[in-house]
């Protein structure tokens, strides 16, 4: 038993890498659900963004164009969700399910037609991918890092060497908090998720507020997906989101729809995912060898345990999931 192994720098580094897409998707869901639109389509939006970001990056050689394409695709699916759940007052859960299946199917069909490599994009390299940014003086070779002392390890492995999206994410949580709690837009957004009738009475368009929320959700999901295929990995493979959209939703409930808590929740789930790909470290920490399948299931098992109520009662926005019908 070596409980300190739980704080292995490599695992913490993995936590950041794997936590970032969860955080972006979780905040995406936060905007949408705070405005009263349930969104279980985070998964599909991330997936289609991951695919188009990789496809366009490869074709044009520019990761930024890829990013834009990915975000656009995600926003289009968001608008579809808005059309179904805001304009046509359809069932928001069913719309989300449809979006997830659509993304799951169309990415493989399109990737096959585009690249003919069995539903994946070719590997990305160079400017077609977000390179990791090395801090001055940071060690880059694994052998050097292993020999370094703790502050240098933290500096070189945990702090240095991430992509631009990860560093931008440091700013995003305070930004979301600020828009949500300190701006007029945020006040209205939260009101529209709790009591749309009151917002309407105040002369503010419920539809416009909800569409804005859904579009923001699309942009953030798009960033999360693009990061998966062009930052975390070098290319798109089928089903590469692997349930991250759903884990982000679970994190959102865990965080009770609040931004700082969302950071904590997504980093916890990111940590579990990081631990799952390093069975050797888990073995060192608890002294028993764990089956890889147990580790595969672990994030989902813990999500259920968390949802089962070790977080107190999570109360969703009151008007969540219900379409608003304007009185005439």
């Amino acid at each position: 038993m070596d409980l300190l192994a739980f704080f292995d720098i490599a695992v913490l580094d993995g936590t950041v890498r794997l936590g970032v897409p969860l955080l972006l998707a979780c905040l995406a869901g936060l905007y949408s659900e705070r405005a009263g639109i349930f969104d279980i389509g985070l998964e599909g939006k991330m997936l289609i963004a991951a695919f188009l970001a990789a496809g366009v990056s490869f074709t044009t050689g520019s990761v930024w164009l890829g990013l834009i394409a990915g975000v656009l695709a995600s926003v289009i699916l968001s608008l579809l969700h808005g059309l179904a759940s805001i304009t046509f007052r359809g069932n928001q859960l069913i719309s989300g399910v449809a979006i997830n299946f659509f993304a799951s199917g169309i990415t493989v069909v399109a990737a096959q037609a585009w690249f003919g490599e069995g539903g994946r994009t070719p590997s990305l390299s160079g400017a077609a991918r977000f390179e990791s940014i090395q801090f001055p003086g940071a060690l880059t070779r694994i052998r050097d890092i292993a020999k370094a002392d703790l502050p240098m390890k933290v500096y070189s492995e945990l702090l240095s060497g991430h992509t631009i999206i990860v560093y931008l994410c440091i700013l995003i949580v305070p930004f979301v908090w600020w828009t949500l709690y300190r701006t007029r837009f945020g006040l209205r957004l939260r009101a529209v998720g709790e009591n749309p009738g009151a917002v309407d009475t105040a002369g503010i368009s419920v539809y416009r507020m909800r569409y804005s929320a859904v579009i923001i959700c699309g942009v953030l999901c798009g960033l999360a997906g693009a990061y998966l295929s062009t930052g975390l990995q070098a290319g798109f493979v089928r089903e590469m989101t692997a349930g991250r959209g759903y884990i982000a939703l679970a994190a959102l409930i865990f965080a009770k729809w609040r931004p700082w808590q969302a950071l904590g929740a997504t980093m916890l789930f990111g940590y579990l995912q990081a631990l799952a790909i390093r069975p050797d470290i888990l073995e060192r920490a608890i002294g028993i060898r764990v089956q890889t399948q147990v580790l595969d299931a672990l994030p989902y098992v813990l999500t259920v345990i968390v949802l089962a109520g070790f977080v107190g009662k999570a109360i969703p926005p009151r008007a969540g999931g219900e379409a608003y019908v304007k009185e005439r």
Partner: peptide, 28 residues
């Protein structure tokens, strides 16, 4: 035709979308 089987998933998604979520678009 070497169209991947995932084409069925796409059709399945469209059926869910139109008969489920966008029901009112057709109905109204």
């Amino acid at each position: 035709l070497r169209i991947p089987r995932e084409m069925v998933t796409v059709i399945q998604a469209l059926v869910i979308l139109f008969t489920g979520a966008l029901d009112n678009m057709v109905r109204m």
